[in-house]
């Protein structure tokens, strides 16, 4: 399948292959490193947080079944708060990507495209 919107954006191969130039650029290396070093710990932390919650439900049984209103207990409230934590972690990632990934990516892109034109 052809790639929409990219056919007309070919960069002329001036001064070596564009892949090689990007690959060798320290900003590309840094970009990959930043991305990787952020998302894998984040994913691990996120999964760990949920697993811990389940474990608490098992072992901290008395605490989790403390009733707040009627039969609505702490476990139920914590469970619904998981939505909030998912949203908060996503916000965190979006801010990170906006501030730390996109500016570097733009810089790299301008450099490569500018050098090629």
């Amino acid at each position: 399948m052809s790639t929409v919107g990219r056919q007309d954006a070919q960069v002329p191969a001036a001064g070596g292959d564009v892949y090689e130039r990007v690959h060798a650029d320290p900003r590309y290396v840094e970009l990959r490193k930043r991305h990787r070093n952020f998302v894998f710990p984040l994913a691990g932390l996120f999964l760990g947080w949920y697993f811990l919650f389940v474990l608490m439900a098992d072992y901290a049984h008395d605490f989790m079944s403390t009733k707040v209103v009627g039969n609505i207990n702490i476990a139920l409230i914590f469970g619904l708060l998981q939505f909030v934590s998912t949203f908060a972690i996503t916000m965190w990632y979006v801010r990170f990507a906006d501030r730390k990934l996109d500016p570097l990516a733009d810089e790299l892109r301008n450099e490569v495209e500018g050098g090629a034109a």
Partner: peptide
């Protein structure tokens, strides 16, 4: 490089 470099670099996607 195509997977991890910034978008719209004008890189041809892999395998195409």
């Amino acid at each position: 490089v195509a997977l991890h470099a910034p978008e719209s670099l004008g890189l041809d996607p892999p395998g195409r």
